[in-house]
Structure formats: C-alpha cells, structure tokens
C-alpha cells in the first residue's frame, strides 16, 4: 500500500517515510498515555498490576520513540536539507523520549521503592505529550503542523491508516508479551521466596 500511495509533490519518494514515522509516534504517545495512567494507580493505589503495565508501556514508548527519532532525521535530510533542527517539536519530542529513558534507568538501578519515584517521572512524561503535540501549532517550526493527517488525499490516507493499524497491532502484541514476561518474572521471584521460607 505504501508503494501504491501517490508520490508527494515536493518530496517525492522520501515522503513515504511518513507511513511509518507518524504511526511510530502515535503508538509512542499511546504508550506514554498507558504508562501515565497506570502510574496514577501505582502512586495512589499501590497497584502491582498497574506497575507491570507501566513498566511494559515505558519500555515500548522508548522503542517506538527511537523509531520516530531515527526515521525523522532520515526524512528531514532530504526534505529540509539538515538531519536535525533544534526547534520546538523536535526538541520536545527528544526530551519526552529521554524522560522515559530516565524512567527505565530508575527502574533498573533505583533499588527498592523506585517504582513510585518512577511513576512520578512517568506522570511528568505524560503531561509533556500535549506540549509535544501542539508545539507545531504554537511555535514557529520547520516541522509540518497537526493538520497533515486529516488532510491526506485519497491513496495516501488508506496507506497511512493501514500502517497505523499495523503498528497498533504490533504494539498491543508486544505490550501483552512484555506484561506477561514481567508477571512470570515476579511470580518466579515469589516462588523462590516461598520455597526459602
């Protein structure tokens, strides 16, 4: 479908990066949202299940954010003539990604009790998403505005939504896998403790 989609007038072939650059950010934002909501339950209800979901979602936010951060400059090199611009959208997206790197580092090396501190970091990260999304409409930036996706022409629209759906399916499958891996790991630790008793 990507091959079938029409060529964009000024950028030509390289514009087709759009079909996986934008879905990867959409899925990353979804993952940040899931992580943020789960972190609310971790902070206020001390839910272990929510903690597992938050950790899995944070890891996937980093994975899909990395795809967006690498495919973007590859597209920008042709479209803008530079790999990177320190403008509002690109910088805020990078900051959002580093927040979730910080979350994972906290979980990995923070020691006991770090899950609540990490949950607060995730909430901070989730609060950043609207700023990243609206940054292109508020500040002057070389990045296209949020009106691009709703105004896609025939051919482009179908290819885009098909790719967005595929990314969503892969994301949900990865999320389910990662949550179950964490559940199994924790259950295994619990079994160890029980047997030592």
């Amino acid at each position: 479908m990507i091959a079938w989609a029409p060529y964009e007038s000024t950028m030509g072939l390289v514009q087709k990066i759009f079909y996986f650059h934008v879905p990867s950010w959409m899925v990353m934002f979804l993952s940040v949202f899931i992580c943020g909501v789960a972190s609310i339950f971790v902070l206020f209800r001390r839910s272990y299940r929510a903690d597992r979901i938050a950790l899995a979602a944070a890891e996937l936010a980093v994975v899909f954010g990395l795809i967006g951060l690498v495919t973007g400059p590859l597209w920008a090199r042709k479209a803008w003539g530079v790999w990177w611009q320190w403008d509002a959208r690109l910088t805020s997206a990078l900051v959002l990604w580093t927040i979730f790197i910080a979350y994972l580092l906290l979980r990995r090396y923070g020691g006991p009790g770090s899950e609540r501190l990490a949950a607060a970091v995730a909430l901070f990260g989730m609060a950043n998403v609207p700023f990243v999304y609206w940054s292109v409409n508020v500040w002057r930036t070389v990045h296209p505005k949020t009106t691009v996706v709703p105004s896609l022409g025939p051919g482009m629209s179908e290819a885009f939504w098909w790719c967005a759906g595929a990314f969503l399916c892969v994301y949900l499958l990865f999320l389910a896998l990662r949550i179950r891996l964490e559940e199994n790991r924790l259950e295994f630790e619990s079994l160890h403790l029980t047997s030592e008793d």
Binding site: M11, V14, H21, T71, W75, R77
Partner: peptide
Amino acid sequence: AAPLLIAA
C-alpha cells in the same frame, strides 16, 4: 531518496 527510505 531511495537510500534514505530503505535505511528508515
């Protein structure tokens, strides 16, 4: 453009 697209 093709190398950039393939790389991405």
